[in-house]
Design a protein around this nucleic acid. Structure first.
Length: 872
RNA sequence: GGACCCGUAGCUCAGUUGGUUAGAGCGCUUCCUUGACAUGGAAGAGGUCACAAGUUCAAGUCUUGUCGGGUCCACCA
């Protein structure tokens, strides 16, 4: 019946199945009593996101797992959704506004929010649609957004609960400030990058003697305008006796104290440090400790304010140059040294962040971290690969309070209300009357919450928490989390904390951390570098199955990807397609859907069935252990090498045998099941062609390794191996002597044992077909020949007469070389076996193995020598 | 300054608890368009497992050090 074209038309097939699966909602999961749940939450991509290779890899991995579990009978829920990405989204819409020459302040908060929502409605589905293209079998009807009504309730609830537990507080502290986004950032959101800067040495004159100085070193000279002191280490001899003196701050001529503080490292710079309590975290600590003034010299946009005197309104970097210029004029700049140091950059816009003193909201993390740390230490939650455990625990052990307030508008507004009294009110709705002062006029806090303050609730808020409901009960906790190492701190660790705090248990059991996708040169793929491969382009050119397959095939630690790598996946998909064509063309309808492998004497059939189940077991072990590329390799080898190159090659001439039809089709179908999680589209299409559409393969069962292990026939595996080696050996002869493929050759065999003889006789047809020999002549001993090449495979000898072609001496020499090699090996083994230390210490099975090898080698030499005698 | 990872064939990587003569894909060489597939088939070349020392009967695999590459964390101004 099959009219399959010779090329797998992935574009058509993917469109068809993508739509069919979705229209029928076949991946939608609901609580089902008696069924085991298996759930995964997607790392919600930014709503502003465009699919990149990292997403493609991340989603492929999750999809393999979820399809595998689905086929294994679990009620699988893969939660999909997007993250409102506060700063990123606001930036996008602000850019639109800028085109109209406006800022968000021009249009006001309400109007800005309207614009943000309409942007979201219009473009927010982009990434979700792209995820569908790669075949992600998410529970799409459940798709969530972190600013959905229900989800927002969860965020508010969490804030209020933590506030009431005193785990959220407001404080005036130094935080990371992005002058471009004009908001506070958490420590994690400030990316430290090695930056080439300078260390400026500035002379601060003594008040009582303006010709004497203390020299301080700084990387940010403009901050001197906010200096209130100079600090030295209490044990630093150089500055003994200066402590009761005063210094004069150059330019502004402010009087400065000299303080001593343990924080100062005498070995760095000059050992004297300018103290700017409002613009440096260390200085802030000292400022508090020594009761210094906190002089803020900067506006939120990074320009200097009136505290900076005549530098006011100047951008911070221009001010830096101007201050240096001025100091030069005053002859107070001692020197400038090049200095590399780590400078914080905004993770959204890459602007250099400023340590900035301001009122912000913080979460006390230590109490939350405790159970989250314990869970990983005691193995309740496992990282794969294991080495990430340490990264996680190290962060947890040194956890700092989390700055959660953002001075932007897109996000969950902080549910805090202020009246006239000092204690604000945390409330789910606008309060009407203050319980303390009786006030009735309230204003809500202007800030919104960090986006991660909503993402950390993802594993349970998506299922409807805080409402108690059946979905949550059934699907929480989820099973595994698949993500990149970059967001271990942002997301993974915080989800664990939230899980314990609000659900009382871990949100997942396994955390699989996959590699970073890099280009062929090892650079991270990024838009700005221009080295990014677009997954959608790859899908168009090679197909989604190819994209998936090649990504997994290439995933070791990090992935080094270039476009050509996807050819491998495409070729494999095409191979599956064409093997199926061959089988379908030759299989009668009644032989297509038999439930188990037929009983047959055909060696190759017994062998391929055995190999299938051995592969299946290997694949399952690998998936269960998150070793996806290993699973895929096993599949690839089995299908291409064993099934196509050997089984189908042997069987294609024997399709008149119904048992061959049945076996070939049976193994094809079982392979399609096994391959489906990896390459869902091509397998689904072929499955439908074979079964004629009873049920989508996506909902079929995965073949059972356990109940089918009985079909593995070790003897057949061994015999087939001999046959394969024999064929290869004879082909080698053909190739060496340049015998044309069309030309049949003469070949004689001999064997001492009946099993080998049987093997030859019963597979004569296969031998003839695979190596083009005239007929299979089996003798008791090999006929002696002059012009011939001979060889031994296991216990089968063969000789190919090749009149006029053979250099006998050379042939003999080759065989002697092999004998020498075997002799060397024997010598090594004998030495080991006669070594008392070895025989007494090595385990019995190793000794047995060595002995077996020894006998095998001896046998081989004997046989090679025998064959050598035939060549004369 | 701390922590982690990597160094195996020309390239990208496997190599599970130490155990024969170390594997795959791509690339390369030679041959082959016989109706599943040239996005294919067959045969082949190519590695003193970065280096050094140590542990062991036995090291690509374990330990230490050196060199080279990468990543993360950290308030040295």
């Amino acid at each position: 019946m099959s009219e399959l074209p010779p090329r797998f038309n992935f574009t058509e097939v993917e469109a068809k199945w993508g739509k069919t699966w979705e229209d029928n909602q076949i991946f939608h999961a609901t609580p089902k009593p008696g069924k085991k749940p298996y759930s995964i939450v997607i790392p919600p991509p930014n709503v502003t996101g465009i699919l990149h290779m990292g997403h493609a890899l991340n989603n492929t991995l999750q999809d393999i797992m979820i399809r595998y579990k689905r086929m294994n009978g679990f009620e699988t829920c893969w939660m999909a959704g997007t993250d409102h990405a506060g700063i990123a989204t606001q930036n996008v819409v602000e850019k639109q506004l800028a085109k109209e020459g406006k800022t968000r302040y021009d249009i006001g908060r309400d109007e800005m929010l309207k614009r943000l929502w309409s942007w979201k409605e219009q473009y927010g589905g982009t990434i979700i649609n792209q995820l569908k293209k790669i075949g992600s079998s998410c529970d799409w009807p459940r798709t969530r957004f972190t600013m959905d009504d229900g989800y927002s309730d969860a965020v508010q609830e969490v804030f209020i609960r933590l506030y009431e537990k005193d785990l959220i507080y407001r404080g005036k502290r130094i935080i990371n400030w992005c002058p471009r986004c004009q908001t506070a950032l958490s420590d994690e959101e400030a990316e430290h990058k090695e930056t080439q800067g300078n260390l400026y040495y500035i002379k601060y004159p003594f008040k009582d003697d303006l010709n004497k100085f203390i020299t301080v070193a700084t990387t940010r000279p403009e901050t001197m305008l906010g200096d209130v002191a100079v600090a030295v280490n209490p044990n630093d001899e150089r500055y003994k006796g200066t402590l009761d003196k005063k210094l004069i701050l150059p330019i502004l001529n402010r009087e400065l104290r000299i303080i001593k503080d343990e924080l100062i490292d005498p070995a760095f710079g000059t050992g004297a440090v300018k103290v700017t309590p409002a613009h440096d975290p260390n200085d802030f600590v000292m400022g508090t400790r020594h009761k210094l003034d906190f002089i803020n010299i900067m506006n939120p946009d990074g320009t200097l304010n009136e505290e900076a005197g005549r530098f006011a309104k100047m951008d911070r970097f221009k001010a830096r140059a101007a201050v240096i210029e001025e100091l030069k004029n005053l002859e107070l700049l001692e020197k400038i040294e090049p200095h590399t140091h780590a400078v914080g950059h905004c993770y959204r816009c890459n602007t250099v962040v400023e340590p900035y003193l301001s009122w912000q909201w913080f979460v006390k993390m230590k109490p939350l971290a405790e159970p989250a740390l314990k869970a990983v230490v005691d193995g309740t939650i496992k990282f794969h690969p294991d080495r990430w455990t340490k990264v996680y625990t190290n962060w947890m052990e040194n956890i700092q309070d989390w700055c959660i307030s953002r001075q932007i508008w897109w996000g969950h507004r902080i549910p805090i209300w202020y009246c006239d009294c000092p204690k604000p009110i945390a409330s789910r709705t606008a309060p009407t009357k203050c319980p303390n002062c009786g006030g009735t006029k309230f204003t809500q806090d202007e800030d919104v919450l960090d986006t991660w303050f909503s993402s950390w609730l993802w594993p349970f808020a998506t299922f409807g928490w805080p409402k108690d409901n059946a979905d949550l009960k059934f699907f929480y906790p989820t099973n595994s989390l698949f993500t990149a190492s970059e967001i271990i701190f942002f997301w993974v660790s915080r989800m664990v904390m939230a899980g314990y705090e609000f659900m009382g248990e871990a949100p997942f059991k396994d955390v699989y951390i996959h590699g970073t996708v890099r280009d062929a040169k090892g650079r991270k793929m990024s838009k700005s570098l221009g080295n990014a491969l677009d997954p959608l382009e790859i899908i168009n050119e090679y197909g989604a199955d190819a994209l998936r397959f090649s990504l997994i095939m290439n995933s070791g630690q990090d992935l080094f990807i270039s476009k050509e790598k996807f050819e491998g996946g495409r070729n494999f998909a095409n191979k599956i397609w064409n093997a199926s064509r061959l089988v379908l063309l030759n299989t009668k309808p009644e032989n297509k859907n038999i439930p188990q492998p037929p009983v047959t004497n055909d060696l190759a059939s017994q062998w391929i069935v055995s190999e299938f189940y051995l592969t299946l077991a290997k694949v399952m072990n690998a998936i269960d252990d998150y070793r996806f590329s290993e699973a895929e390799n096993a599949i690839y080898d089995f299908f291409w090498k064993n099934y196509c190159d050997w089984y189908l090659e042997i069987s294609k001439n024997k399709f008149s045998d119904e048992k061959i039809q049945q076996t070939a089709c049976f193994i094809l179908k079982e392979s399609l099941r096994m391959m489906h999680p990896f390459m869902p589209f091509v397998t689904e299409e072929l499955w439908q062609n074979i079964t004629e559409g009873e049920k989508p393969l996506s909902l079929e069962n995965w073949p059972s390794a356990k109940t089918n292990i009985k079909f593995v026939n070790p003897d057949a595996v061994k015999q087939m191996e001999t046959l394969i080696n024999l064929v290869s050996a004879i082909r080698n002869v053909r190739s060496q002597f340049n015998i044309k493929p069309q030309e049949s050759i003469e070949c004689h065999f001999s064997a001492n044992d009946t099993q080998s003889k049987n093997l030859l006789n019963s597979n004569a047809e296969a031998l003839q077909a695979l190596v083009k020999i005239k007929d299979v002549q089996v003798h008791d001993s090999l006929p002696a020949m002059k012009d011939a090449v001979a060889g031994v495979v296991d216990s089968i000898k063969f000789i190919v007469p090749l009149s006029g072609l053979v250099d006998l001496a050379k042939e003999k020499e080759k065989m002697r070389q092999e004998i020498t090699l075997a002799e060397k090996s024997i010598a090594g083994i004998s030495q080991r076996l006669s070594n008392e230390a070895f025989t007494s210490k090595a385990p019995a099975e190793i000794i047995e193995k060595e002995q077996a090898t020894l006998t095998q080698r001896q046998q081989r030499i004997k046989e090679l020598e025998e064959v050598l005698e035939n060549l004369n």
